[in-house]
Amino acid sequence: MTHLIALIDGSGYSQSVCDLTRWVAERTDASVELMHVLGRRNTDSEPADLSGNLKLGARSALLKELADLDEQKNKLELKRGRLLLEEAKTGLEEKGVATVTTKLRHGDLIETIAEFEGDADLILVGKRGEAADFAKLHLGSNLERVVRSAKKPVLVASRAFKP
Score class of each variant (00 low, 15 high):
19 D>E: 14
108 D>Y: 06
56 L>W: 11
147 V>W: 01
59 R>H: 07
12 G>W: 02
73 K>M: 13
46 E>H: 10
20 L>G: 02
20 L>M: 13
13 Y>H: 05
71 E>S: 12
75 K>D: 12
49 D>S: 15
34 L>A: 00
97 V>P: 00
79 K>T: 15
64 K>L: 06
65 E>N: 10
14 S>D: 04
56 L>K: 13
71 E>P: 01
117 E>T: 04
148 R>L: 03
113 I>N: 00
79 K>S: 10
78 L>Q: 15
86 E>N: 13
104 L>T: 07
117 E>W: 03
119 D>S: 11
78 L>K: 14
126 G>R: 02
120 A>H: 01
31 S>H: 02
105 R>H: 11
98 A>T: 10
37 V>F: 06
4 L>H: 05
29 D>T: 05
9 D>F: 05
61 A>N: 08
36 H>M: 06
125 V>N: 03
10 G>E: 09
22 R>N: 10
120 A>V: 04
111 E>G: 07
97 V>C: 05
24 V>M: 09
137 L>V: 09
98 A>H: 12
113 I>G: 00
6 A>I: 12
20 L>S: 03
85 L>K: 10
102 T>A: 10
57 G>S: 15
100 V>E: 04
44 D>I: 14
127 K>T: 12
106 H>G: 05
13 Y>A: 01
17 V>K: 01
18 C>R: 00
19 D>F: 05
67 A>R: 11
110 I>D: 05
117 E>C: 04
21 T>H: 06
86 E>T: 05
72 Q>C: 11
17 V>Q: 02
105 R>Q: 14
39 G>N: 12
53 N>D: 11
81 G>T: 07
144 E>L: 12
83 L>H: 09
139 L>Y: 15
63 L>T: 08
119 D>I: 07
34 L>N: 00
52 G>R: 05
38 L>M: 15
87 E>S: 09
14 S>E: 02
85 L>Q: 05
126 G>W: 01
111 E>Y: 07
149 S>T: 07
82 R>E: 15
86 E>H: 13
142 N>A: 12
12 G>R: 05
28 T>A: 03
42 N>V: 08
81 G>H: 03
18 C>D: 00
58 A>W: 09
136 K>S: 15
37 V>Y: 00
137 L>M: 10
25 A>L: 04
29 D>N: 04
99 T>E: 15
76 L>E: 11
149 S>W: 01
145 R>M: 07
137 L>F: 14
26 E>M: 09
75 K>E: 15
82 R>N: 14
106 H>R: 11
30 A>K: 00
138 H>M: 13
146 V>K: 01
17 V>I: 06
136 K>V: 09
27 R>Q: 06
69 L>I: 08
89 K>P: 03
111 E>D: 13
103 K>C: 14
141 S>A: 15
79 K>V: 08
20 L>F: 06
99 T>P: 01
100 V>L: 08
91 G>M: 08
11 S>K: 08
141 S>Q: 14
30 A>L: 02
132 A>W: 03
104 L>G: 06
97 V>Q: 02
111 E>M: 07
87 E>L: 05
110 I>V: 15
79 K>F: 07
50 L>K: 09
24 V>F: 10
